[in-house]
Amino acid sequence: MDEELLIGLLRVFIPLSFLSIGGGGTILAEMAHQTVDIHHWLTQREFVDLFAITRAAPGPGMLIVTLIGWKVAGALGALVATLALFVPSSLLFCAVTVLWQRFSGSPWRVTIERGLAPIAVGLIFAGAYAVLEATQGGLLAFATAGVSATVLMWRPVHPLLLLCAAASIYGVVLPHV
């Protein structure tokens, strides 16, 4: 039973590791789809909560996999999920970096960089949309994200300040509406 769960974690997160082109934000949509809709490891509600926790805490946002693993199969699950997401892409990265440096300035490298960029952009927005869709906020969630993005584009505000502001507005004002 437990082994099945651990193998399930590997099956979901190893492919996601190779797919996380352009950063953790790109696989967010697929991760939500796999863990919530297909495997039913956690509810949409829990996915949003874990996402919020990893964003409010220090460290890379991809640590959400550690929490999903923890939720699915305890400490061992956390370890397996973390390794499944971090190790494959890291090995690939180290191998390719060595080659990549040799091809600096080669037209192929420039073309691949330019070709993959729009894919990553589309996936980042898909991930943002997936999380907003999963929150209960509806239109308010979209508005909050929009305001937060606008502020961040405009001024060098510390992101943690924005998270605190949103947390207090949602926590203090919303329960009384």
Binding site: V48, L162, A166
Partner: peptide, 9 residues
């Protein structure tokens, strides 16, 4: 929810 929405920003 609030934190998640702002983080999506």
């Amino acid at each position: 929810d609030g934190i998640a929405a702002a983080a999506v920003g």
